[in-house]
Simulated scan of single mutants.
Amino acid sequence: MPRRYVLVLVAVTLVVLGAGLLFTAVSRVREAAARMACTSHFKQWALALHNYAALFPDERGTKKLDAFPAGTVPNSVLPPEERLSWWVPVLPFMEQGAVCDQFDLTRGAGDPRNAEPVSHRLQWLVCPSSGEYDRGTHEWKSAAPLTHYVGVAGVGPDAATLPLGHPRAGVFGYDRRTAFLGDFPDGVSNTLLLIETAQTPGHWAYGGAATVRAFAPDMAPYIGPGRPFGGWHNGTPVLFGQRTHTCVVAMADGAVRSFSNATAPEVLEALATVAGHESLPADW
């Protein structure tokens, strides 16, 4: 091969490699910024939930329960998926009291009387990596207001319906409220509160699987594209090896962490329960 062709080939290769490295660097910066924004969302909602727990009275209004909300607004005549979600009573603690006040809490999310507040879109409930909300154009991609953040119900398909204290129950059950005093044998720092998901996100105002989800062992591994949780922070393009897929979570003590597709399913299952008494590795 003539020398000039070799030089041209080398030059083209260097340009391609340079462009690839630049694209990777830009992608990493963008993803890091989106993940930081997502982390900020989780911190705000975790704080809102703690403020709710500290200030909200029991059903009779006689004393403070110091408990997280039930997974759905209580309504004995509606199934969980038609009730209002736990997000609704927490809205005032995110300076959205005006929206909360518009709800008729005795009716479901699909009731005509709740049509106006249900139509509200909340930026803090969508992952910035999803592209759901365009901050430049202020436009939304989906027709319905969605949430990418859900409460953790525990382990197993029936986790949201289990009684308080069950070894597979998590913080959020459709009809149970988990209190700080006595309901966290595993410890609040070892219990998942919120987690993000890209899998069939639902409307934030609806109860059921739209806003409360569990870890189902037959769906493991849990984190990554097409998996039950995570799916937005899919790593950045790499020239060699595999991407790392991360998932942002909030713990019951208010701390915000990230797990990855390398996190063992058994660890996530142990963290999903409030009273499972599981053993966790030292470096989880």
Rank of each mutant, 00 (worst) to 15 (best):
S279F: 02
P117K: 01
V99L: 13
R4G: 00
P112Q: 07
P69V: 06
V10Y: 00
P69L: 08
D186K: 00
R168A: 12
I195N: 00
K64L: 15
A46P: 04
A144R: 13
V118G: 03
G151Q: 01
T62L: 12
N234W: 04
T24C: 02
R257W: 09
P237Q: 09
G224M: 06
Y174G: 03
R176D: 03
V152N: 10
A264K: 13
G170V: 03
V90Q: 00
A19D: 08
A272C: 04
Y52W: 11
H148Y: 10
A153W: 06
A264W: 10
F172V: 04
V152Y: 09
R60G: 14
S130V: 04
P145W: 06
L9P: 00
Y222S: 02
E116S: 06
A214Y: 07
W204S: 00
P201T: 03
R28W: 09
G173V: 01
P157R: 07
A34T: 01
D101P: 00
R168Q: 14
F240S: 10
V152C: 12
D283Y: 08
K141Y: 13
H245F: 15
W232H: 15
E269K: 04
A33Y: 11
P92S: 12
R3Q: 14
P217T: 06
C127Y: 01
T161N: 14
V8E: 05
V88D: 04
T197L: 08
Y174C: 02
Y149W: 12
T200P: 00
Q199L: 11
I223F: 12
T161L: 13
H120Q: 14
G182K: 05
R107H: 13
E139H: 13
T137I: 04
A48W: 09
R107E: 13
V8K: 00
Q102W: 07
W140N: 06
P2Q: 11
A160Y: 05
P80Y: 09
V77T: 15
D104I: 03
S119A: 15
L78D: 07
A179W: 05
D183H: 13
Q199F: 08
V256L: 04
G108T: 10
Y222M: 02
N75E: 04
G235A: 11
R176V: 15
A32W: 07
A220W: 10
W284V: 02
A159C: 09
L268G: 11
G231C: 09
G208I: 06
L239V: 11
D111C: 09
K63T: 14
A54F: 06
C100E: 15
C100R: 15
H166S: 12
E82G: 07
R35Y: 08
P69T: 07
T273N: 03
V150S: 12
D183C: 08
D134I: 00
D58C: 11
L105M: 15
A160M: 06
T39W: 11
R83P: 01
G136Q: 08
F184H: 02
V249W: 08
G231K: 02
K43V: 08
E266W: 04
V29Y: 09
R213I: 01
D283I: 05
R213E: 02
T106V: 00
